[in-house]
């Protein structure tokens, strides 16, 4: 890069940094905007939705329609990438990494899976939710492809299974939405399925089910993206 480009980069970066600094220092204090939607959510969210985590309450109850739009965007991205990159459906292979890495990840991968499931199912109690846990589940497929070779990934966790998981996650989400209409409410209404006391695992209505649906959808979608990107890389060295 030339010198003017360096100066230009420093100028833009310092401008952005000053903007970030000013806007971070002007974050609203608590109860500054009375009678706003913020006030309503903070005061009534626990009794209305039963979710301890306000962000999950907003994402999957008050604004669940927006989350449906987001997962539709992910679905569009997955479809586009698969359409562009899938020229061959052969299971193509690499050898993977060394023996030590394979054994250690053989011990670690169940715990990574458990962590992803924990983040998904405790989305209404602690930070996290369907999206973050789903990305962790999708990372397991990436670990399989890199550490064990993409042939292992193809055999253990084939593209058909991934497509099935993604579709079932999306169908669970939309089915819960239409269930609200069938029971006489709005689309994506918070159904009264799990009604234990607030703060336990089986609480918060239909929010845990929406979390599980979004988690499987996002995880399988990202795994499909990564698999369709990596499958052509090893085409030259097929020695199954």
């Amino acid at each position: 890069m030339s010198k003017t480009k360096h100066i230009f980069a420093v100028l833009i970066l310092s401008l952005l940094g000053i903007t970030l600094l000013v806007s971070l220092s002007k974050l609203p204090n608590q109860f500054e905007y009375a009678n706003s939607i913020y006030h309503h959510v903070v005061n009534n969210s626990i009794t209305e939705t039963g979710s301890l985590n306000f962000v999950t309450a907003i994402l999957y109850d008050y604004r669940a329609y927006d989350s449906l739009g987001e997962s539709t965007i992910i679905f569009g991205a997955v479809s586009g990438i698969v359409l562009l990159l899938s020229r061959k459906t052969l299971p193509v292979s690499s050898h993977g990494l060394s023996f030590i890495v394979k054994r250690t990840f053989g011990m670690l991968t169940p715990f990574i899976f458990l962590f992803g499931i924990y983040i998904i199912t405790h989305g209404h109690l602690s930070p996290g939710g369907g999206f973050q846990g789903g990305v962790i589940l999708g990372a397991i497929s990436i670990i399989f492809s890199i550490v064990y070779g993409s042939e292992f990934d193809y055999k253990r966790y084939s593209p058909t299974t991934k497509t099935l998981l993604e579709t079932s996650g999306a169908l669970l989400f939309i089915g819960l939405g239409f269930m609200g209409i069938l029971l006489g409410g709005n689309f994506l209404m918070n159904l009264n399925i799990l009604n234990a006391e607030v703060g336990s695992l089986l609480s918060a209505g239909s929010i845990p089910f929406i979390n599980i649906g979004i988690g499987f959808k996002i995880g399988a979608g990202l795994a499909i993206i990564f698999y369709s990107m990596i499958q052509k890389t090893f085409k030259e060295e097929v020695d199954l």
């Binding site: 990494l97 060394s98 030590i100 890495v101 250690t104 670690l108």
Partner: peptide, 13 residues
């Protein structure tokens, strides 16, 4: 304790 030596081994190899 598990993953840091693992990454080091992979990078060195």
């Amino acid at each position: 304790l598990i993953t840091n030596p693992l990454a080091t081994h992979a990078i060195a190899r």
